[in-house]
Design a protein around this nucleic acid. Structure first.
Length: 477
RNA sequence: CGGGCUGUAGCGCAGGGGCUAGCGCGCUCGGUUCGGGACCGAGAGGUCGGCGGUUCAAAUCCGCCCAGCCCGACCA
């Protein structure tokens, strides 16, 4: 008997860890805060990476690779940037057995080294826009780590773009935010809230930071991706200028944007249940598993049938035939459910006789009899239905746990009881934001991208002054 | 980094100064099984988290350290 997964109702954090370890997505590494991404987890990351990479290329970006080590002095060039990151830097001070003249930082993000290179590559408006992405690992020395959600080293992609005008940079920032939103919703089946971060929450060195925020099953928010408009901050720090069409010199306008292996944590905490992982079909490394059910005398027949089934499906779907005869069908059912495979085909003598098979859905547990003839088509339909159902389920949950509140008393009551997202009028001052955080632990996750006048006539829920925004508050990871 | 809990076989745990350190699951071999985590038989597997101390004797008592989890502060 395998270890049991702690039920969500008993201990949500432990449930999450149980899923990660038992579904063999990752394991703890010898170094504190680091994890090993196991084949199951890495296959998932590869799928996510491939889809995103395609979306980046479609929007005109090219991949490159910049080095892991960054001169200490580079980080210091942008004042806010160094202030934001210095507490969590890992620094190399020895190399080749000798103390280095200048310490080297293991990148926590690559703005500085990339902009030091952009200085060499950009002279004219003809060199713009420069649209580069890199897939890389980064290191941030976090105090408290959690598998996938916050690890000392993590994998991510970081896009770094350079533009001629402020408008173009802003357009790029939002374009990539919506690429992330599309990916989260259409592939991960995770509904997200897209919006802008407040001054307090924005990226160190950015003019504006935009975010997509997802709601986990415990109703806490998880920042799933960010896109930054860096203005001319890094261009000025690294002296990156270009000659405009009319011959003047100007600093280049910049963006950066990233998503990380944290998305795997978001995926788990959005869809999975007490039986284990649930993967959306569009990202599942294995979509279908075939489980033969036989007695000794029917073994040969069933296995042969399953083999034919496997051969006929493998061109169209990512399918596995579990013909291991060490485990019983029941054991296999549980094991594949634990690993989140969206669809299971059960084939026994009875089914073969009736010329049908049983399909079992991971999302609902429903078992469906399907005539063998129409199997290939039905699989496609059901996988699509699972994908849609997962999104709908998560969207309903998010909606049911999003509250519009105007009175601070109600705000506190909801944050302390059910939690969730709270949309409330806010005056725009950091002071109110920080007080609310102190008193309730809830932070502003995002404010609407355009001020559409929703806050007109409303009063800030904390200070009672005229509200400028309807902001979304939540406790977060 | 503060508060709490926990480290004994791969995993989950019991033992709590004395002679050969156990149990369940898993693992190996042989056989029977197989429609929701099968069963029988025979095996393998441990410097009891690490270092130091007390003692005739330490998994057990004491000190320090390390690791993991939970709750905070910091963050993708």
């Amino acid at each position: 008997m395998a270890e049991k997964i702690t039920p969500r109702s008993e201990n949500y954090s432990q449930w999450y860890i149980d899923i990660v370890l038992q579904a063999k997505l990752a394991d703890y590494a010898p170094v504190k805060g680091c994890m090993v991404i196991r084949p199951n987890g890495y296959a998932l990351w590869e799928k996510m990476r491939d889809v995103l990479d395609g979306m980046f290329k479609e929007t005109g970006h090219k991949n490159a690779y910049f080095p892991l080590l960054i001169p200490d002095s580079f980080l210091k060039r942008e004042a806010e940037h160094v202030e934001g990151f210095s507490p969590e830097l890992a620094v190399v001070t020895y190399g080749g057995g000798e103390e280095l003249d200048e310490p080297l930082i293991i990148r926590p993000t690559s703005e500085t080294i990339i902009w030091s290179m952009y200085k060499k590559w950009i002279q004219s408006y003809r060199d713009l826009p420069l649209l580069i992405n890199q897939w890389a690992n980064v290191v941030r020395w976090e105090k408290r780590t959690r598998l996938f959600l916050r690890t000392t080293e993590f994998l991510w992609q970081e896009g770094h773009t350079a533009h001629e005008t402020a408008d173009e940079a802003q357009e790029e920032t939002l374009k990539m935010l919506f690429v992330y939103k599309k990916f989260a919703e259409e592939y991960m089946a995770i509904p997200v809230l897209a919006g802008e971060k407040t001054e307090n929450e924005k990226f160190a060195g950015a003019v504006k930071t935009y975010t997509i925020e997802a709601m986990m099953q415990d109703r806490k928010a998880l920042q799933a991706g960010t896109s930054h408009n860096l203005g001319q901050n890094f261009a000025k720090a690294f002296d990156v200028t270009f000659q405009t069409k009319d011959g003047t010199l100007d600093y280049v306008w910049a963006t950066s944007w990233g998503v990380s292996t944290r998305l795997i944590g978001a995926l788990i905490m959005t869809h999975s249940d007490d039986k284990g992982l649930i993967l959306p079909p569009r990202l599942a490394p294995t979509e279908v598993v075939i489980i033969p059910i036989y007695k000794n005398k029917t073994k040969a027949t069933v296995l042969e049938y399953c083999n034919r089934l496997y051969q006929s499906l493998r061109g169209k779907y990512s399918v596995v035939l579990d013909d291991d005869d060490q485990n019983t069908p029941g054991w296999k059912f549980s094991e594949w459910e634990l690993q989140g495979i969206p669809l299971r085909i059960e084939v026994g003598p009875r089914d073969i006789e009736k010329e049908e098979v049983i399909l079992a859905r991971r999302d609902t547990g429903e078992k469906i009899s399907v005539p063998s003839k129409s199997l290939e088509q039905r699989i496609g339909e059901i996988l699509e239905d699972i994908q849609n159902n997962l999104f709908k389920r998560a969207a309903t949950f998010k909606q049911e746990n999003t509250h519009g509140i105007e009175a601070y008393e109600d705000f506190k009551r909801i944050i302390d009881s059910d939690g969730g997202f709270i949309q409330a009028p806010w005056c725009g001052s950091s002071e109110c934001e920080l007080r609310i955080k102190e008193e309730t632990k809830a932070t502003i996750r995002a404010i609407p991208i355009s001020n559409n006048g929703d806050a007109n006539g409303k009063k800030c829920l904390y200070c009672g002054e005229d509200a400028k925004f309807i902001a979304t508050f939540a406790k977060s990871y």
